[in-house]
């Protein structure tokens, strides 16, 4: 038996619905036989009547409703159809959910699932990676699972957390990643993972870019260059200690992110390493992100817009040559 990343998300939700009466799922087109635009809830509405609910096309009200329900003791999961559409709900997420505990000491345990990142032909409004925006604001936990195992355990953990959690699931990984079985062990939220040990350079990355980085590391290994790949897993909180420990081993840092280049996760990681681990660096830290344009539709443009094995490899060479 094998499990895809998408199936892991569905199985996690089935487990949550089965084991916790407080859990319900709220989103567009998720109920009935349809089971969501990506089928992440397929079969769940039939299995758990009244707990997988279709909503109007109202991202703001979907999250507002989840906030109210969470404050009343429920554990709602909101499925955004695409991460990009969560911009409509930014106000509720940032200003209502993100400030609630600080202001009123009332926990607001919502989980917002964002089908994130680019796939061929998806264009400007169905491809965005928004973890940087959400991480900028206080009061939120932001997760970017990059493996089947993490997709499963981190979603279960997300719902258990007493705070609003932004769970960024990568659409490209939905069908491309497979594991033999659902995991029986997990890393805690807030811990990064060394996915590949190395000694010459650290690539710190997250979500689908972890797999691009691994491909590049593989390529360099043939030439005797050992790249360490760090999967952040959780963007907020960010596991600075694991990143610094990696840089201490390699002396060189390249951050790779699929999001737009201004600010964001890669900039934050470099800022922390530069301020807390400047003495560990043998070369200037580097980063590579998507280009500073909207995400293009055509595959020829799209594959150049985001970091890819070729551009990452070129950056690796540059950092190694310093």
């Amino acid at each position: 038996m094998s499990v895809t990343y998408l199936e892991a998300i569905r199985e996690a939700q089935a487990k949550l619905l089965r084991e916790d009466d407080r859990v319900f799922i709220y989103g567009q087109d998720i109920a009935g036989k349809f089971g969501g635009a990506f089928k992440a809830t397929k079969g769940l509405a039939e299995q758990f009547p009244g707990r997988v609910l279709n909503t109007p096309i109202s991202e703001d009200a979907m999250v507002g409703t989840a906030i109210g329900a969470a404050m009343e003791g429920m554990r709602p999961i909101v499925e955004m159809q695409f991460a990009d559409f969560s911009s409509i709900a930014l106000n509720q997420i940032l200003n209502n959910a993100g400030t609630q505990y600080w202001r009123t000491q009332t926990p607001c345990p919502i989980t917002v699932r964002l089908p994130s990142g680019g796939t061929k032909g998806s264009g400007p409004f169905h491809s965005q990676s928004m973890e940087g925006i959400y991480s900028h604001y206080p009061g939120l936990v932001v997760l970017t699972p990059a493996t089947v195992e993490d997709a499963y355990t981190m979603l279960i953990d997300a719902v258990a957390i007493d705070d609003p959690v932004i769970y960024c699931e990568h659409k490209y990984l939905y069908y491309h990643l497979k594991a033999d079985a659902l995991p029986t062990e997990k890393l805690p939220i807030g811990k990064a993972r060394i996915v590949r040990p190395g000694r010459d350079l650290s690539i710190v990355t997250n979500s689908a870019m972890v797999h691009e980085a691994l491909a590049v590391a593989q390529q360099f290994s043939a030439d005797g260059v050992e790249i360490e790949v760090v999967d952040l897993r959780s963007v907020k909180p960010l596991d600075t200690d694991t990143v610094l420990a990696s840089v201490a081993r390699t002396g060189r840092l390249l951050c790779v992110g699929e999001a737009f280049p201004w600010g964001g996760v890669t900039a934050e990681v470099i800022a922390r390493v530069a301020t807390e681990g400047f003495h560990l660096l043998d070369a200037a830290p580097a980063r590579i992100n998507a280009k500073d344009t909207p995400i293009p539709y055509h595959p020829n443009l799209w594959s150049e817009h985001r970091p890819n094995a070729k551009t990452i490899a070129a950056k690796v060479r540059q950092v190694l040559s310093e």
Partner: peptide, 25 residues
């Protein structure tokens, strides 16, 4: 008694969520 945020209309759906949860419970 919910604590309003300044963004007008934002509390309407929060009340809906409270009511929905009460019904579920």
């Amino acid at each position: 008694q919910l604590a309003m945020i300044s963004h007008l209309g934002a509390m309407v759906s929060v009340v809906v969520g409270k009511l929905l949860a009460k019904r579920m419970k």
